[in-house]
Design a protein around this nucleic acid. Structure first.
Lengths: 88, 88
DNA sequence: AAAGTATTTTTATATTTGTCTAAATATATA
DNA sequence: TATATATTTAGACAAATATAAAAATACTTT
């Protein structure tokens, strides 16, 4: 849960997730969407992968990144606990 | 959304939310649950308040903190967007 | 009014994080 | 095999963050 929130605690990384919502993208395609160096994006992708929020698949010289929505469910469950009633 | 995720990106702050799930607590009662100085806890509470995840009410010399679950809904909505289908 | 309790603010420090450049790895093409 | 392309790794630096100690503020009680 720690690594998940750490990964989500960055505007660039959240924007990457938004991009991947539409379709899978290569690391280069993702980097092209930002005014940030490729190594930086690579690092962001690494953190997202550590949190299991994205998955990467190598295809030839490209590495395709895709969204892993199952982890989102984990956060959802965590959030839901707070909906329970409290003692008065 | 930035301040929310920033606030959630800390184990101590998430644990504070868990404590407040059961019942409202004063800053001192919260601090007693951790091996961290009161100023530190005060700072954590400040970040949680900035994110509107908690609310504080002064009662005499005490300040009671309580959970504000409406912000959780905002995160929930943000998470839900990723459930949409992607282009093939 | 003085002393005590609850909490925050200020200041300082150590650690973590985001970013860059340069170098390394891996694959493709000529 | 040499060169180009895609991506990551390594190393360095500045900015942000968590924490603590000390001081300040606010309320309560004596």
């Amino acid at each position: 849960m720690n690594t998940i929130f750490k990964a989500l605690n960055d505007p660039t990384r959240r924007e990457i997730l938004q991009l991947l919502k539409d379709r899978d993208l290569t690391a280069g395609e993702i980097a092209d969407q930002f005014n940030i160096s490729k190594p930086s994006i690579s690092h962001h992708l690494d953190l997202l992968r550590q949190a299991d929020l994205v998955q990467s698949v190598k295809e030839g010289q490209f590495i395709y990144y895709s969204l892993n929505t199952t982890v989102m469910d984990e956060i959802l469950t965590w959030l839901m606990q707070f909906r329970k009633k409290k003692k008065k």
